[in-house]
Design a protein around this nucleic acid. Structure first.
Lengths: 349, 349
DNA sequence: ACTCGTTAAGCGAACGTTCGCCCTTGCCTA
DNA sequence: TAGGCAAGGGCGAACGTTCGCTTAACGAGT
């Protein structure tokens, strides 16, 4: 910070007191039109910009929102990060807010300390948090300290203890199931996540819902659980392909695209053709999905709207003290149908 | 901001003046060990955290770095964003700095206004900029206003007018060329970017260097230019495959992974096998690359080191007023060899 | 002619720091 | 014994705002 025009200089030029200039800027002023014009002219001429620290010291608010997220492993891009961030700070800027990004720490205690630090020093007015595991300590901590925040995701299906926006993963998978059933599939397997994943369970629930809606009875051997990686997808699919023919699945619903990628590899290696012989669906609609061979049917989340929505709600709260209704919102994802399912030839043999 | 413990409260508890507390915290103090202990105890007991606005108002610095970037199109993930950001704010935090992210605007004038605003209000002390097109107005603007910044990338090959770190794209492509030549390729094509792309030209230069090093003479028809999309890659490859056999390429070097993906599709559609019949290389080593069929040989950039490096250099400047040498740094990318080249069978017929 | 209300603008204070200078005390040295 | 110096700590001021209260001037109503 080299130069810096202050209120006083503007005031001197306009021939008024500096407090009056302040009033004009925040239009809380009863000022004659002529003086007001003089002041605005002086502001323009000197190219005055209100000092952020001064302002925020006086107002006791930083007009800044904090956000951190868990870094994705090097072999896996975060498919939503860019859009999510962009939409958050775009929405924030409209209200004069900005987004402060800070490091993620795997150690919970350390992470909480960072949250506390950022808030207690007054660097941020509130947070957006997107990490929602079962034992996640951040939510109760912020809640307990009455630190404002909104969540991308929830901790329990029927959670109402804090404001959030979440994707209805179950509804997404249910859509995929409906699609598969319509194509004629009856033996549908699921590649699921470990049962300690809330998001995973939520999505899997859509699988069960899809089965019962189609009147298909559930076979436990058709649900395989594991980490959401392509390796797990690969192994699990090999297992499924080795099942006796009468229960061997003709379609595999995966809880994310990575598993679907692994599944596709396994199917191909078994000499079968993805899509035509066995349908595969993913979840996330990673940009990669459409470039796979064949292009992968997947479920895409309305990230942009969520980012904007969350930000606006948080700011609304910061300014007024009340969260706009509904406090908790569930948005539906959309099924993107591609060749990995659409090219199915039932009873191919 | 609800509660807020101040210096004065700490001072009252420790029985000293509040300025003394400040001195102890910034350890500029000549204080007896006992008083110092009393002060630290009081700080711990009250859980005091220095107020950010007060501090930054007094010191006239925000300890904040600004960063914006061009959003990537929805069908394309930004492969480096996550790692780049993470490493930037991790490095920043170590020095007590944070990263402020703000919206990108395609309109240059508007974008510059945002830069100016952020700096003039004192919200940030400096910037990291990563958008480096030929006509890029940001660099000269910041330079002219003497606003501190570092660049990820440069505007000209021999640029020294501002501090930056850049990837030596030419060296990367040259590595790929060497690899292909070693496999026995002699007819090597390049899918290049429009000639108004500095980054593209820099990379392409590595292609020419590779050719001449191997003593292969350059055929203009083997260099096809276009946007770095898979569609362009697809079309361009179809054209290449239609060339008369004596000049038809046995390997295609692409300036990014997207083009390589398109190239692979075209090759496959032509009934040829990627890797065995025609080698393909990409650039960026997107996480996708290893999951393609076959896995794509690509060039990976050391993003983490760059993010950390840039941040440290900028902060160093902000604190001392001098940029650490060397002001401009070029880092070499690394070739990741995968099946899209390694399975080549020369003279397959 | 006196009060009253309105309009236009000024003034002091406060937000929480840090900075530089000054004061006091005690001790050492010439 | 006067002078000096170092250690330990206090004090006023300033950074740039905004907030709430006061003041001055003026016209209208009784």
């Amino acid at each position: 910070m080299f130069k810096s025009v202050t209120l006083k200089e503007v005031a001197a030029k306009a021939g008024v007191s500096y407090q009056t200039v302040s009033k004009v800027i925040n239009n809380k002023a009863k000022v004659s039109p002529e003086t007001e014009k003089r002041i605005w002219d002086a502001i323009a001429e000197l190219n005055y910009t209100p000092n952020y620290s001064g302002r925020s010291l006086r107002q006791q608010r930083s007009k800044t929102i904090g956000y951190t997220w868990e870094p994705s492993p090097p072999d896996q891009a975060n498919p939503i990060l860019d859009a999510f961030l962009q939409n958050m700070f775009r929405a924030a800027e409209e209200k004069g807010y900005y987004l402060l990004c800070f490091p993620f720490h795997a150690d919970d205690a350390r992470m909480l300390k960072v949250y506390a630090q950022l808030y207690d020093t007054g660097r941020v007015d509130g947070f957006v948090i997107s990490r929602m595991n079962y034992g996640e300590p951040t939510v109760p901590y912020l809640l307990g300290r009455r630190i404002p925040f909104v969540g991308f995701g929830r901790l329990q299906d029927d959670d109402t203890s804090f404001p959030y926006v979440d994707v209805d993963g179950g509804a997404g998978i249910a859509q995929a199931m409906e699609h598969l059933v319509a194509l004629g599939h009856r033996k549908i397997a699921a590649l699921a996540w470990p049962s300690d994943s809330r998001v995973g369970n939520n999505r899997l629930e859509g699988y069960y819902r899809g089965l019962s809606k189609a009147g298909i009875l559930h076979r436990p051997s058709l649900v395989v659980r594991g980490e959401g990686t392509s390796d797990v997808g690969f192994e699990a699919t090999n297992y499924l392909l080795g099942l006796p023919e009468e229960i061997r699945p003709t379609a595999i619903v995966c809880m994310n695209d990575m598993m679907a990628i692994g599944a596709m590899q396994a199917i191909r290696q078994a000499g079968l053709q993805v899509g035509r012989d066995i349908g595969v669906t993913g979840f996330d609609d990673t940009p990669t999905a459409r470039y796979l061979t064949p292009p992968l049917t997947s479920i895409s989340q309305p990230i942009s709207e969520i980012g904007e929505n969350l930000t606006k709600r948080l700011i609304e709260f910061l300014e007024t003290g009340i969260f706009p209704e509904p406090r908790c919102e569930l948005v539906a994802p959309r099924l993107e149908v591609r060749e990995s399912t659409s090219s199915y030839l039932p009873a191919g043999k």
